[in-house]
Amino acid sequence: MAEDIDDKALDALDALLAEAARDMPTPALRARVLADGVSVADAAAPAPRQSRAREWRDLLDGFGGWRALSGVTAAGVMGLAFGLYAPGTVDLVLDGRLMALSDGGVTPDIEALLLAMEDLGDV
């Protein structure tokens, strides 16, 4: 039977295989797979860091964000952070970005924050 297969049959098969190569999953399947990914990512995320980040975000929002703080107030808030938490575990939120204080000292992002505080004046 295989010997009877002619070029037309093989061409038609190639066209059918090419059509199969364009078969795509449904949007619903894609959504389920993405939801699984988010679930796995959420389950793996360290909870205390996230909750502290949210606490800081809420605190800063209460002040009207970093830019609303005077230099003295900003320094006070930073001092509160260092006093309440060990530097190795604090997460801060600045302009919506999560930054970590490493055990060895501040990150470059925190140094940028300190410079920004000087720009606020009123120190």
Binding site: D23, P25, R30, V33, L34, G37, A41
Partner: peptide, 26 residues
């Protein structure tokens, strides 16, 4: 993605899910 980047998951899904689905379907 292992560090929590869900945008990475979205791109991986768009690249790899069609392949997995077609393989399984056929």
């Amino acid at each position: 993605f292992a560090r929590g980047d869900v945008d990475a998951a979205r791109i991986l899904t768009d690249r790899l899910l069609p392949r997995v689905y077609r393989h399984a379907a056929r």
